[in-house]
Design a binder for these strands. Structure first.
Length: 819
RNA sequence: GCGAAAGUGGCGGAACUGGCAGACGCGCUGGACUUAGGAUCCAGUGGGCAACCGUGGGGGUUCGAAUCCCCCCUUUCGCACCA
């Protein structure tokens, strides 16, 4: 026996074995039953399970277990996001192969998860590093290539000098690598990209199908996609050509007093050719490059004149062209029209260099203090034929005008860029492309997949792609012409792997296809997806994109795979995230060792609602263990009574207790199923136990009291079972049940039984509580008022006053307004 | 700077649609049992002697506000020259 008063260790082992041997949580498609697909984000096998995982998976486990007891055919799988950098870094450091390191971590972490008793369909476990899995990554990649969705281009990329690889824009956080925070450099490399931008509009539009996603996640995605409506307009430059700009405020174009071009803009070379300012410009470009390489934060706006002018097609007048460090090559067209009177950035630049500021928008409220810049809307002035138009109308007319005259058009621009997936690393999915001198870039044949990662690789960390150093891998023959050819040596971003794993779970061992469509049609969509908020943009945009691609390929019927999302909050200790560097990590194993898995699960669910942050507390878990000990004692004391059979009516004490029981069943059910407030579900079970304990002696003393106590014990065990499954099984068995509790039916609540016959109505006088009266349920306002007048305290508050008004909320409150 | 969310006892948090603020747990105080108690059980626990006062601060709407509206402060998280 332990401190807890029950031998959790052997109880946990016993039931974990039982569940495994009886395949209790394995899932089979069954058209005769409604399905429920409960999914949690699979972990990266870093080595150990941490508290964030425990919380994430405990939340999912309660939901999955409850749904099973509610009669659903539940799919609740688990797997491993098993490719990625840390394995390779460990390989360099420890001279172990990434595969070995990964598999050892998986074994350890699987055992940890099993010790916490999560109800997973383990037979469906998958790992993305398995060639049988990543084969389908390659398959999908080739289909994307064939569809024109995967393409190669030389691009300026984010390069992490520490991880020695390229990072997607999404993986650059505040100028640093998302994994190691090393300052990211810019390099130009040939890369594979996926045309996620083709789906920008759908990704936005289909947000309407995601009503059960947290609002802020959708907002983050919208901001990330960054749709802007505006216009593109071409300014001509004598003997050079056109410079196209993008603007959302074409209504201010008459106020454009200069053009600002990114130093990286391809036209710069032509602009400088023969320009007297070429030397200064080149120096400026070099400076900007140096600054960008260092990723210096918020630089002041600077620039140099190119000595050339461009013609504003609306006014026909020339404006000087500047190179400016605040114009991004990656967004829009890499060039802007600068309107200092109506844009703060342009204003700052113009003020610095003494450029003219021409006001063309009159604010609706002329008294508005604009500090020299008015960025709002208004009526156009000094804008030729467009004078007097309101901004919005002017934008339409001016875009149409540009279109008519052939120098521009209305246009939509997105912040979202194509997804760069090439990684110069070993431990990822090989990109299944072949370079043939005769045929060019050719995909591997489908029947030759998977292109497997070669075994004999040296992990030196020296920089270039490890796969390029393996001749047996690198050298191949062209699938088209049969001549000698070279393989692509880059591997895929691991977000590719996790973009479709939820589909693989439905048929994880299938060899002939990535997934069985019948199974997909049965199990999908995912009914609830639970994971960390940190994936709000990356993973959760990619998997939406991927699903739309698969739909367009005819492989799935869905547009959105996950209609309901729960983002759980972080687990903190001392107010900050647990991390090795801070030295504030609490290891789940040490907790299960000391208090048991059930206490750990219960506490982590009780301490805060799932979507909020959770502050870890060792004291808190003691409270959870105490609660379990009390149920254990109660169950033990009730066990001998289970032979009793009820005869006749419940006694008054029993009736009262059963009322509380049914109120509790109602609340627990609702809190889990509709509100996802698992913390209050636990609280109401605790509340019920408090009532149960204090009433037990009185109840037992009356007729049928023993039956009432048995009823309470039985239902309480069922309610607790999703939270503390091992003890619940043990109690269930102790009280004489043969079928395991995990497969038992969730208790139904009886509204009639739950209803109070007598309610306490709060009586206020002028909004202040002056007393409480006991009334029969459903009493009228008049009856309640009469009762109130009889109460001495209330009567005192009413004495000498005139009742002006009464507000009555049946069964709850009576407010008497007096003067 | 922009955007979003949140501020409730000593602490984590409850209060679902505007209707008893502080459920439940931790901690604390006192007591019981005990060789012992960091076990268990019982009682108490927002502040104030009271009337009363209390949900970050100030206004407002309402019979009634933690909840709705306006202004301010603080914290957290996103985005951060996106034209």
């Amino acid at each position: 026996m332990s401190e807890a008063g029950y031998d959790f260790k052997s109880i946990e082992e016993k039931w974990q074995r039982y569940w495994r041997e009886h395949r209790v949580f394995e899932a089979e498609a069954d058209e005769s039953k409604p399905k429920y697909y409960c999914l949690e984000m699979f972990p990266y096998p870093s080595g150990r399970i941490h508290m964030g995982h425990v919380r994430n998976y405990a939340i999912g486990d309660v939901i999955a277990r409850l749904k099973r007891m509610r009669g659903f055919n539940v799919l609740h799988p688990m797997g491993w996001d098993a490719l990625g950098l840390p394995a390779e870094n460990a390989a360099i450091k420890n001279k172990t192969h990434p595969e070995k390191w990964t598999h050892e971590n998986i074994s350890h972490m699987r055992a940890q998860l099993q010790r916490i008793g999560f109800a997973y369909a383990w037979e469906r476990e998958l790992a993305t590093c398995d060639p049988a899995y990543y084969r389908w990554n390659q398959h999908f990649f080739i289909r994307m290539f064939n569809r024109g969705l995967a393409y190669r281009k030389g691009a300026q990329v984010n390069w992490c000098p520490r991880c020695l690889t390229v990072l997607a824009n999404e993986q650059v956080v505040a100028g640093g690598c998302w994994r190691c925070a090393t300052a990211v450099e810019q390099r130009v490399m040939e890369q594979w990209f996926l045309k996620i931008t083709d789906y920008a509009e759908q990704l936005l539009g289909d947000e309407s199908l995601l009503k059960l996603w947290p609002e802020h996640v959708l907002t983050m995605q919208e901001n990330w996609i960054g749709r802007s409506e505006g216009a593109r307009v071409r300014f001509s430059v004598e003997s050079i050509g056109d410079i196209e700009i993008f603007t959302t405020r074409v209504d201010t174009i008459y106020g454009a007093t200069f053009l600002a071009v990114s130093p990286q803009h391809p036209i710069v070379a032509k602009l400088l050719d023969g320009s007297p300012h070429a030397t200064e410009c080149r120096a400026f470009i070099a400076e900007c490059e140096a600054e960008r390489a260092q990723r210096r934060e918020v630089v002041e706006k600077r620039g140099v004149p190119t000595g050339r002018d461009a013609i504003n097609p609306f006014t026909g007048r020339p404006v000087p062209i500047y190179l400016a460090n605040y114009v991004l090559m990656e967004y829009g067209t890499g060039a802007i029209m600068a309107v200092p009177a109506h844009d703060e950035r342009d204003h700052e630049f113009a003020s610095r260099y003494g450029l003219p500021i021409t006001e063309v928008i009159a604010p609706p409220d002329s008294s508005a203090d604009t500090n020299g810049v008015y960025t709002g809307e208004g009526r156009l002035v000094s804008s030729g034929p467009f004078d007097g138009l309101p901004s919005q109308e002017a934008r339409q007319k001016m875009a149409a005008h540009a279109d008519d005259k052939g120098f521009g058009r209305a246009s939509i621009t997105y912040k979202l860029r194509d997804w760069g997936i090439s990684r110069q690393r070993y431990w990822g999915t090989p990109i299944p492309m072949i370079y043939c001198d005769a045929c060019g870039i050719v995909p591997e044949r489908f029947e030759n997949l998977p292109v497997k990662l070669p075994a004999g690789v040296e992990f030196t960390g020296s920089g270039s792609s490890p796969l390029g150093q393996v001749p047996e891998f690198l050298n191949t023959t062209c699938p088209t012409c049969g001549r000698a050819a070279r393989r692509e040596t880059d591997t895929m971003d691991t977000f590719f792997d996790s973009s479709w794993y939820f589909l693989r779970y439905v048929s994880p061992r299938l060899d002939s296809a990535p997934f069985d469509s019948r199974e997909v049609n049965y199990w999908l969509p995912v009914d609830i997806y639970i994971g960390g908020i940190e994936h709000a943009i990356l993973h959760l945009i990619y998997l939406r994109f991927f699903t739309k691609f698969l739909r367009d390929e005819g492989l799935v019927e869905l547009s959105e795979p996950i209609p309901k999302l729960l983002t759980q909050g972080m687990v903190t200790l001392g107010g900050s995230a647990m991390s090795k560097s801070r030295g504030n990590v609490v290891d789940p194993d040490s907790i299960t060792e000391k208090y048991g898995a059930d206490a750990l699960r219960l506490f982590i669910l009780f301490a805060a609602p799932p979507d909020k942050g959770l502050e870890w507390s060792e004291h808190g878990i003691e409270g959870a263990a105490r609660f379990l000990g009390r149920i254990h004692s109660f169950v033990a004391s009730t066990t001998p009574l289970f032979a009793c059979r009820r005869q006749g009516e419940w006694g008054p004490e029993s009736r009262e207790l059963l009322r509380k029981l049914h109120q509790t069943i109602k609340k627990v059910t609702r809190d889990i199923e509709s509100r996802l407030h698992l913390n209050t579900a636990v609280a109401s079970m605790m509340e019920f136990l408090n009532v149960l304990e204090s009433a037990a002696d009185r109840v037992r003393a009356e007729a049928n009291g023993a039956s009432a106590l048995c009823e309470c014990a039985e239902k309480l065990i069922l309610l607790a079972s999703p939270f503390t499954p091992h003890l619940a099984e043990e109690w269930w068995e102790l009280t004489g049940h043969s079928r395991c509790v995990a497969l038992s039916e969730w208790p139904a609540f009886d509204d009639e039984l739950a209803k109070e016959d007598v309610v306490e109505v709060v009586v206020q006088v002028n909004g202040r509580v002056r007393g409480r009266v006991l009334c029969p349920h459903g009493s009228t306002e008049t009856d309640t008022f009469s009762l109130s007048e009889a109460d001495p305290k209330i009567a005192a508050a009413l004495a000498g006053k005139t009742v002006v008004k009464r507000v009555y909320v049946p069964n709850k409150l009576l407010n008497i307004v007096v003067r």
